[in-house]
């Protein structure tokens, strides 16, 4: 009897803990806006408006953003750098760019205790570190490259036709190519080795397209790899590095 009662209590406790976890998981855009208001931002309205666009398009997750905002709030860096990081994300959203890559790098940099100024602007010299500013430029360069090759995206629930991909698929391709270019550059690779860069892009896209439940469809990877050329990738990097 006593044992049965104990089991019942344990089960009830488990249910309560489970329910609490469910209730606490899942921030809302409102939570993000409230957290932002605690940062005393000079461009508060612009950032909130851009984040609103990001939430509505599904490019921004409230859970990830609130984590980033809270980490920035807890960081000892300058207010200008904190705002600068949020502004890069906001302006990428205004410029119709995916922002996963930017948020991920910001989170990693904060976790590594990298100074906010380096996370934002990077460093040049012996070890090149790309900041969020340069990463946004590379995202933009890749997106424009795809546009120039006749590969577009359709927002919302539009149907993919010919070379117009749904926004999630288009964003994923832009993000992955940009990430390869950033990795390549940070590893010290020369932007003039276009064939090497192209090969890195090919490996990334094809590997992802061959996974179970692939994050990138094989047809999308084939389309992009058929249309872009090594020299195109060199141009994207050179534009950023000057």
């Amino acid at each position: 009897m006593n044992r049965g009662f104990g089991i019942l209590v344990a089960l009830l406790l488990g249910a309560v803990i489970l329910a609490s976890g469910t209730a606490f998981g899942g921030a809302t855009p409102g939570d993000v806006y409230r957290a932002l208001s605690g940062l005393e931002l000079a461009h508060h309205d612009e950032i909130v408006q851009a984040f609103g666009i990001g939430f509505s398009l599904g490019r921004l997750s409230p859970d990830r953003m609130i984590q980033l905002v809270n980490r920035l709030a807890a960081d000892g860096g300058t207010q200008a750098d904190k705002e600068g990081i949020l502004l890069v994300v906001a302006r990428a959203l205004e410029d119709d760019l995916p922002v996963d890559l930017l948020i991920d790098k910001a989170e990693e940099g904060l976790a590594r205790n990298i100074p906010l100024g380096v996370i934002l602007n990077g460093t040049v010299g012996e070890t090149r570190i790309l900041g969020l500013v340069q990463r946004k430029q590379i995202l933009e360069g890749v997106r424009d490259l795809l546009y120039s090759k006749g590969i577009f995206c359709v927002s919302g629930k539009g149907q993919a036709v010919a070379t117009s991909l749904p926004i999630e698929r288009f964003d994923r391709i832009v993000t992955e190519i940009a990430d390869v270019l950033c990795d390549y550059t940070e590893s010290g690779g020369s932007p003039f080795d276009g064939h090497l860069i192209y090969e890195q892009v090919r490996i990334r896209l094809e590997t992802l397209s061959q996974l179970r439940e692939p994050p990138i469809l094989a047809e999308d990877a084939a389309l992009v790899l058929e249309r872009i050329e090594p020299g195109d990738l060199t141009s994207v990097i050179l534009k950023v590095l000057g």
Binding site: K105, E108, G109, R112, I114, V118, T127, I129, D183, E186, S187, G188
Partner: peptide
């Protein structure tokens, strides 16, 4: 499967 440089590490 692979390694990349990030923030100099």
């Amino acid at each position: 499967d692979d390694y990349v440089r990030s923030f100099g590490q």
